[in-house]
Nucleic acid binder design. Structure first.
Length: 489
RNA sequence: CGGGACGUAGCGCAGUCCGGUAGCGCACCUGAAUGGGGUUCAGGGGGUCGCGGGUUCAAAUCCCGCCGUCCCGACCA
């Protein structure tokens, strides 16, 4: 009976485990529209916290929010040849409006480069108008063949930054700077370590000069691309006539960047930290950080325990000592639900800390504090509770990042590896494999065909092996780069 | 679009082979007791059996067609 309530174990079927966690933790639902999902309040609360944190980081780097239309004239996409070629198969197109056939079809934005740079062209005249740093929070549509909750849906929520600069180098710096912002966010807030680096040409954004990405490892050792940043060069500015008069007096085309990250991060969070009891939300992202579960056997005890619980709740504002903002505390005072049932429910939903208080505790002026990630239980003094909770949340946030990083490193292979061994690893549990690469598309494609593994990124210096492989993993020729190989979502 | 599985109450399923007018668990509502790791008992509400057609006295069940979903590939954040 109890077994029925257990989640599918991850080793048997990670996909099934993931779906079950997402659905049962009430993060999302399948929508009546094929390939779409409905984000439930629990899931949206996490997204809101991600959004707020990222938005602050964007503001701090000088970006402003704006909003552009969901419909883009089809001709706009055709102005940049590579871009339309890349996105054409994934477009949703509106052909009718107000009961009449439209003269020109409207594309539901799959990304907003074209309409945004069309507007930028009107806004920019002088080098003094640059850099132009804009971000938009929006939903976009890509007609994917296969979809998956949070990770790949037809419609998804994201943030897309778009900038224009006077020189290539400034654009390049911006693209790399925003990649760094993503990495900081993912490590500090999601407690999810990422490998950053350059994408190979085959995985480059359609229309970009260079694409950078953050790659995170999930518990089935597959990679998730959690955020990307592109140096778009001058392709779009030439297509949309985005010109400015330089100090020299000459008219020059601007250099663009774009960068985005999505609700996919919620999926990545689930697959990074979740366990067989459900989601584990890093404290900074948890809509509720602490849930108080009162325990009582009689009306008298109930009154007593709840009074104390309310006292704790109302002293929340005094607990701001070591952290910004208020502690987000919820008292689960539902009658008729046994404490054990409440424990399981809040664990499934991933609430970081649980405080149990019952008559036995009150007698000792203490409570029992339980950590979601380690399930470690310990008594805490109710007089110093605020401090204790703050410290525990900070520690949990840090520990989760360390644990995730250790797990990733334990499943990473650096240095020499034969191709046979590589195939064996990819056929089995998978891994992050850092291996030499000659830069040839033929090798890349052959490896993908034979192992399903792809180049996630050509990693930044700090992720490169001390003794980087000298030869290509596949053909044995001299290596021109070290690539991070993994199977990906 | 190829290969598999499936569509019956909010969710998970049984019933389909062998036709007889719909059931189980969870959830939900009412009442009482219970309460330190998934409570118990009693009562109750809820279903055009994916859609359309056919066979039959009678279809969730058999036949034909369609639609949709999930998983595995190709595509992708």
């Amino acid at each position: 009976m109890a077994d029925e309530k257990k989640l599918t174990t991850r080793k048997e079927d990670f996909s099934a485990w993931y779906n079950e966690v997402v659905l049962r933790a009430e993060l999302a639902d399948y929508s009546p529209v094929r390939g779409c999902m409905v984000i439930r309040p629990n899931g949206y609360g996490i997204w809101e916290r991600m959004q707020r944190a990222l938005d602050d980081m964007f503001k701090a780097t000088g970006h402003q929010n704006a909003y552009f239309p969901i419909f883009i004239p089809e001709s706009f996409l055709h102005k940049e040849a590579e871009h339309v070629e890349g996105f054409a198969p994934q477009l949703a197109v509106v052909t009718h409006g107000g009961g009449k056939k439209l003269e020109e079809p409207l594309v539901v934005r799959p990304t907003s480069e074209t309409i945004i740079y069309a507007m930028f062209a009107k806004w920019v005249q002088s080098h003094r108008d640059l850099p132009l740093l804009i971000n938009q929070w929006a939903n976009v549509v890509r007609w994917e063949m296969r979809t998956r909750l949070f990770l790949r849906t037809l419609e998804f929520l994201w943030q897309e930054g778009h900038t224009a600069h006077a020189t290539h180098d400034e654009a390049e710096e911006e693209a790399r700077r925003m990649l760094g912002v993503y990495r900081d966010f993912m490590e500090a807030w999601i407690a999810m370590p990422v490998v950053t680096g350059l994408k190979s040409d085959s995985e480059k954004f359609a229309g970009a000069l260079r694409t950078y990405a953050c790659e995170a490892m999930m518990q089935d050792n597959k990679a998730v691309q959690a955020g990307t940043s592109h140096n778009l060069g001058q392709g779009f500015s030439k297509a949309f006539d985005l010109k400015f008069q330089a100090e020299s007096g000459n008219l020059e085309y601007a250099w663009n960047t774009s960068w985005g990250t999505t609700t996919r991060m919620i999926g990545a969070m689930v697959m990074t930290h979740g366990d067989d009891n459900g989601v584990v939300i890093p404290p900074l992202l948890a809509p509720i950080e602490v849930v108080i579960v009162p325990i009582y056997r009689s009306d008298d005890e109930r009154a007593q325990v709840l009074e104390k619980a309310h006292a704790i709740m109302s002293s929340v504002h005094e607990w701001e000592r070591r952290r910004p903002g208020r502690l987000r505390v919820h008292l689960d005072d539902r009658d008729g639900v046994k404490p054990g049932a409440k424990y399981y429910e809040w664990e499934l939903k991933g609430i970081p800390l649980r405080l149990e208080i019952g008559p036995r505790d009150l007698a000792k002026n203490q409570g029992v504090l339980v950590r979601r990630d380690t399930r470690e239980k310990r008594p805490v003094n109710l007089d110093t509770l605020g401090e204790d909770l703050s410290d525990a949340l900070i520690k949990m946030q840090d520990d989760m990042l360390v644990a995730a990083r250790e797990r990733r490193e334990a499943n990473s292979i650096r240095g020499k590896i034969t191709y046979d061994k590589f195939r064996e690893v990819m056929d089995g549990d998978g891994a992050f494999v850092y291996a030499g690469w000659c830069g040839g598309r033929a090798c890349e494609d052959a490896i993908k065909d034979e192992t399903k593994a792809t180049i996630r990124v050509l990693p930044d210096e700090e992720f490169r092996s001390a003794e980087a492989p000298k030869t290509c993993l596949k053909c044995g020729k001299e290596a021109t780069a070290e690539a991070l190989w993994a199977k990906a979502y």
